[in-house]
Design a protein around this nucleic acid. Structure first.
Lengths: 333, 333
DNA sequence: ATGAAAGCGCTAACAG
DNA sequence: CTGTTAGCGCTTTCAT
């Protein structure tokens, strides 16, 4: 039942060199004579030696493992980001410890402490409520961290996103130009900075530029789920909205189908525009117009940035803003 | 830049006990006098001591970390399974190292070796082509493994699934009873055991029970993507199929929309039934009829089974088969 | 109930 | 270019 049969010591003995030398060839240290390197390599091959990453981690204080905290694995927005993270992590030979936070503050704290105990070399964090408590936990990790597709209202933490304010403003302008006067704003919790400090700001800016009144009754705060959106159909009609900006694609799909099933014609009688351009936008009928953002890239760039931070490389800008766009499909006129 | 400031040694000194005692209280060993336990606890609190999991792992040969290999993070089928795995892992205090395989055989081998190096205590594997090579790698891990929502044609590895053959047979019978004579079979690669050895078998069984001929021209092998399904619309009409069983929900959504956009009325002129009952089935219009399966539970039960295996607990059946169902929605008559 | 001591498998100075 | 020697921080016998 030995997990580890052959160790670096066995290789050293068999190859008649010191373990330091074995360590050197394993780690690609150039200070080894080709002949002995080959000899060691042969023995490694013959014994089928595999370095123990845990021992390595303890000795070197580097685990080549990063932590990724994700609010919801089953939400396409996050899983697309994760894919970008994963690809780049692989490229740089880092393993990922996945930690689900369920957008729950206590759990976020817990998982971060947990990642710290595991001595991760860095953390990619997705989530939009960075409390002071969390900031402390993150500090204790003594490891670099970057926010992926998430914002830090205090702009202290390195992050990669798009310009959410401008994106929402653009989306709103589109709706306003088409003559909509009562446009609903539908997103997740306003406790999330991205909703409260960015999207809502964009919403209000567009309104005020168009000299339209801001009506709190048009603001819907719910959770990011299809069901939640579907359930909103009646309320949306009750407030006489003729369009909606929605902060999540599944939520938007729910709004769209809820409305359609209630006999509302989208986009003729009601326009909807969503935020993340995930695959859901193509699957619904009508297809959903959306803000577009390079999700995979946001994840990939986050991870790349993290590697730089972990290597103490020179960083240009700690907050990288990627370009967004607007894609008109069928849910808007 | 010290990652670890306070160690067990510091606590021992400060509490005037040996590190062995500190270790005992940290690990909940009952052989500690309540008074000294309290003293140690106080010092731990005061110094904000956090055990280093890496050192622990090296000393105890247990990392409380498991590896999860997943073909595609962005596919709902797998992410739903992962959610179940994750929840139970948390419950038993295991961390998850996530390893994407991209349904690529070489990558599977590589990630398994990687997980082995990291000394994971167990592995949950999703994927349906267990080659001999992979089996060897898995063996070398010296860690228990369970297949989640995946099959091992050789039935050697512990796994949790539904009865795929029966499920597909049921789905086919439904289609056949409605009078369909030419039913397409649309799935991913036939190299995958689940497609070749299970689903296809169910398809053929249903056909033969109904005395319908098996026509290889009705079998479509593609990848699990919306685009792939969408692109199949013409081919499906060319072979004069009037219905299709589809092995993946996104793929099915593609088939459905492709057909609809080509002017085919679903379900009036063409029925489709899919396999995984993920959220996509509710979002498409018409909604998709589907085999139902307890995805979250499959993941959860897999993880639970793995914990038992890791603790050398007595296991009843190494292959657990969960119930499936059939849900009629609007894509079938 | 508690302590001493020997590792776990590897890296990293430091010599030579 | 290679070997020696300490640890890394913790668990785990084995004594006491």
């Amino acid at each position: 039942m030995d997990k580890q049969t052959v160790t670096i010591y066995d290789v050293a003995r068999e190859a008649a060199v010191s373990m330091a030398t074995v360590s050197r060839v394993v780690n690609g240290n150039p200070n080894v004579k080709p002949a002995t390197r080959q000899k060691v390599l042969d023995v490694i091959d013959q014994l089928d030696y595999r370095p123990n990453a845990v021992a390595r981690g303890l000795a070197s204080k580097k685990t080549t493992t990063i932590g990724v905290v994700i609010p919801d694995l089953t939400n396409s927005y996050f899983s697309e980001l994760a894919r970008g993270i994963d690809d780049v992590a692989l490229m740089y030979k880092y393993n990922i410890i996945l930690a689900s936070s369920d957008e729950n503050h206590d759990k976020e704290l817990q998982v971060v402490d947990n990642l710290t105990a595991k001595q991760v070399d860095g953390i990619i964090f997705m989530g939009n409520q960075i409390s002071d408590e969390l900031r402390e936990s993150l500090d204790r990790a003594h490891a670099p961290i970057v926010l992926a597709g998430s914002v830090d209202e205090q702009r202290q933490l390195p992050s990669v996103n798009i310009d959410y304010v401008a994106a929402v403003t653009d989306a709103m302008n589109r709706l306003i130009q088409r003559g909509n006067k009562r446009i609903a704003f539908v997103t997740g919790s306003m406790d999330e900075s991205i909703n409260h400090d960015y999207r809502l700001k964009g919403y209000q800016q567009a309104l005020s530029s168009a000299r339209l009144n801001y009506d709190a009754g048009l603001v819907f705060q719910t959770d990011y789920s299809y069901r939640a959106g579907y359930a909103l159909a009646q309320a949306l009609q009750d407030v006489k909205a003729t369009a909606a900006y929605v902060g999540d694609d599944e939520l938007a799909a729910g709004v769209l189908n809820g409305l359609t099933d209630a006999g509302v014609d989208v986009p003729a009688d009601f326009e909807v525009i969503t935020s993340n351009d995930t695959r859901f936008t193509e699957i619904t009928r009508p297809r959903m117009s959306s803000i577009t953002q390079p999700l995979y890239d946001i994840g990939a760039v986050s991870m790349r940035l993290l590697t730089k931070l972990m290597n103490n490389e020179e960083i240009g800008e700690r907050t990288v803003v990627l370009p967004y766009g607007l894609k008109k499909r069928q849910s808007t006129k």
